[in-house]
Computed example of a mutant assay.
Amino acid sequence: MSNLKIRIAERAADIPHAAWSAFAEPGHPFLNGDFLRIVEEQGVAIPEAGWQPLHLVASEDDAIVGLLPLYLKSHSHGDFIYDWSWKAVWERFGHRYYPRLISGLPYTPVGGPRLLVARDAADGAAVRNALIGVAKGIVEENGFSTWHVALASPADVEALQTAGLLVSHDVQYHWSDAGFGDFGGYLQSFSAEKRRKVRAERRRAAESGLRIAVRHGGEIGAHEWPALHALYKSTFDRFGNHAAFGTECFAALAATLGDRMVVFTANDGNVPVAVSLCFRSNDTLYGRYWGASRHIDSLHFELCFYQGIDYCLRHGLTRFEPGAGGEHKISRGFTPQVVCSAHWIPDPEMRRLIAPHLERQKAGVAAWQDDARSHLPFRKPETGIA
């Protein structure tokens, strides 16, 4: 592909919306030309917040054939690489760790393609390799410590590993529809004891007297977002963390994404007292943010898990990814899944230090996945135990 050229776009909005839509999964709520544009325009992912956009755009004969979301970051918050300890290692050897490059979705632990290539590209592998090569070059030419590709798809991980990147492993907990039909059918797949526990949790939430509502982004007025945002922010305030998304950002996402945003609320009369904010693609629901103004027994499980599963079953979605972490998801039927990220470390000494750590991590994650699977609530078909 002798005519292939790669440029840097300093804003997602500088890349034609049609290119994002053509390269990403249809209906995806994040890689669609809207999400990244809005979080940048609303100050969530901008240089002043530690996210400098440097998106790579590959073109051939003036036609865009590839994209790579890319940010220069001055911290490790909100990218789900979990590399806080790496900074100390770099400094111990006299190196500066920040800034470093990251390809991923700001404050969004959702896996998927990062090397976006046009389906009709004459040589998709060449486009992918060119994007990788330019990203590696930016690191080396500027003396940056690393380039991380967060939660990449298996195909991307393979290409990145072939290009010399190291791979890290982590576990998330995902729900999949096995033809359950409805929530009652889903519970029938549980052992009797686990089924009783879920029913008890749902009953306690119902007995609170709160009214559960499920709406899409386009159904929520701009005047409602201050109250919903206050609930979201309360979770971060409780743990001394920063709530990255502002009220106007949520309102813009809701108005633009419409049905691709799903909001579950628990209401005391007309006042929302808890919210679970999710997004959806054509086949997957993504749980993102929870907040409540007071503690109500089992309401978190109801809004963040059970309502989401019920939504998937009613709307024909086959997957539910409720976010990073949370071993308590296992007993509610979320299966441990290994997710991978890739890391370019140009310094040979630092690479030799990190590589064995990642190999040990891989073995530990595999062992954790095996153990976690043994705690799933489902009946054991081989024994017929109910």
Rank of each mutant, 00 (worst) to 15 (best):
V198L: 07
K194N: 14
Q188K: 15
D177N: 15
R211G: 07
A152C: 03
D170G: 10
D182K: 07
S145Y: 06
S208W: 00
S168P: 01
R199A: 13
Q188P: 00
K194V: 04
F183Y: 13
L160H: 08
S189Y: 01
R215K: 13
D156M: 08
R204W: 00
R196P: 06
S168A: 09
G184D: 14
K194P: 01
Y173M: 09
R211K: 14
H148M: 01
R195T: 06
G181D: 05
S191W: 01
G217M: 01
G179P: 02
Q161S: 15
D156F: 04
T162A: 15
T162D: 14
K194L: 05
A152P: 00
L166I: 03
L187H: 10
W147Y: 08
G181C: 09
G164F: 06
H148R: 05
A213F: 00
Q161W: 10
V167W: 02
A213R: 14
G181N: 05
G209S: 06
S208G: 15
A206W: 00
K197F: 02
D182M: 09
V171N: 06
V157F: 10
W175N: 05
A178H: 13
L160D: 10
P154C: 07
A163R: 05
A150H: 10
R203Q: 15
E158I: 14
P154N: 12
Q188N: 15
T162P: 00
P154R: 13
E193C: 02
L166K: 07
V198H: 08
A213P: 00
L166S: 10
F180P: 13
G181A: 09
K197S: 12
G217K: 02
A159P: 12
G217S: 04
V171E: 02
V214W: 00
S168W: 08
V149D: 05
A192T: 13
R202T: 08
R203I: 11
R196S: 12
H216L: 00
